[in-house]
């Protein structure tokens, strides 16, 4: 058992299983059927959204409670550009959606990222409320009755659009956060801002870049989502519960882990669909999400994925065998990224 798990988590094994996963994902519309393709489109979208939240929340150490604002801004940008009269090509609108979202992130992030984390949480949240109210109130967004987009009924078109966006997001985030100097700088700032600053890192700039990165992704995804559902209004693309869902997915998956977002998104999205199917509403789902966030923070702050981390697995196996934990294993407290924060 433990050997099989070790094989999956080894470097070569990981690459192989990733390739296999990609193969399954690419070929899925061919054999999975329309219903499951749509479900999987949702999963890939939420995986990328949870990842984007994780960039600033898990890697940056700043919790954004208004991430839905960027999603909604992206959705409205695409909708406005594709309107008859403007009539842009769908793919041309996506970069614009991403850039607009990032620009808003920079403008809002610049003053508050210098302050304590609480201010950032408040400001992002207030931003989301304000954006929703503006979209409701002004004329060109259609107010609460929303906007319609041209109809494209192809299920696989949106599946592949989401998949490409999702894979690109994961690829870019992996390289930037785990394999580049930017990632080191960001983690250094998160773990000890003063020390990072004394090494010559421009801490505000690093945080601002991370926030812009984490806003581009929902901006682009929002654009794809708008075209997918062909009709958007503030209740569908600017609702606070979308942020709740990103937060809980990232927490379930584990903060500051690339793979965590995908796991959290898959688990939560399927639960969400099950709730919709069996209760027909989402209000009870909101309560479940809230309870889940609270419980994870209380009992599993490293996320559910930490249950399957390598050290824990072997420890679990040893415990099941009734033996003592081998001493050479690094304990949870000694792993990197565990220093006390100064938020």
């Amino acid at each position: 058992m433990s050997r099989a798990l070790a094989l999956v988590t080894s470097r070569g094994g990981r690459a192989a299983s990733l390739a296999l996963l990609l193969l399954v994902l690419v070929s899925f519309p061919g054999w999975g059927g329309d219903y499951w393709t749509r479900i999987l489109t949702g999963v890939t979208m939420w995986a990328a959204l949870a990842l984007s939240w994780n960039v600033i929340g898990g890697y940056g150490g700043y919790i954004s409670f208004g991430h839905v604002a960027f999603f909604g801004i992206g959705a409205y940008t695409t909708a406005l550009l594709m309107k008859p009269g403007t009539g842009w090509n769908f793919f041309a609108t996506l970069p614009v959606a991403g850039i607009v979202a990032a620009a808003v992130a920079v403008i809002v992030g610049w003053p508050v990222l210098k302050l304590r984390g609480a201010y950032f949480a408040i400001a992002t949240w207030a931003l989301a409320e304000a954006v929703a109210q503006i979209a409701n109130g002004v004329g060109f967004t259609g107010g609460s009755s929303g906007m319609s987009l041209p109809i494209n009924a192809s299920t696989s078109f949106f599946y592949y659009a989401m998949l490409v966006a999702c894979v690109l997001s994961f690829g870019v985030c992996y390289v930037l956060l785990e394999r580049s100097r930017f990632g080191y700088r960001l983690k250094a700032v998160r773990d000890h801002e003063v020390a990072a600053g004394s090494f010559g890192i421009n801490t505000t700039a690093v945080k601002l870049q991370a926030f812009a990165l984490s806003a581009v992704i929902p901006g682009v995804l929002g654009g794809i989502f708008a075209y997918w559902i062909t009709f958007i209004n503030p209740a569908s693309v600017l609702d606070g519960s979308l942020t709740d869902q990103m937060v809980v997915m990232a927490l379930v998956g584990g903060l500051g882990r690339i793979s965590g977002a995908a796991v959290g998104a898959a688990v939560l999205y399927l639960i969400n669909q099950q709730f919709l199917a069996s209760f027909g509403d989402t209000t009870s789902y909101i309560a479940v999400v809230g309870a889940l966030v609270a419980l994870i923070v209380l009992f599993r702050p490293d996320g559910l994925v930490s249950l399957f981390a390598r050290g824990n697995q072997t420890r679990l196996v040893w415990q099941l065998l009734g033996r003592a934990i081998p001493r050479a294993r690094p304990s949870a407290a000694q792993r990197p990224g565990k220093t006390k924060e100064h938020a």
Partner: peptide, 20 residues
Amino acid sequence: ARPALMALAFTFGLATLARG
């Protein structure tokens, strides 16, 4: 790792639970 942020997330979870 990050108690202040986790505490924020905790009260956020409580708020979401109350609302839902």
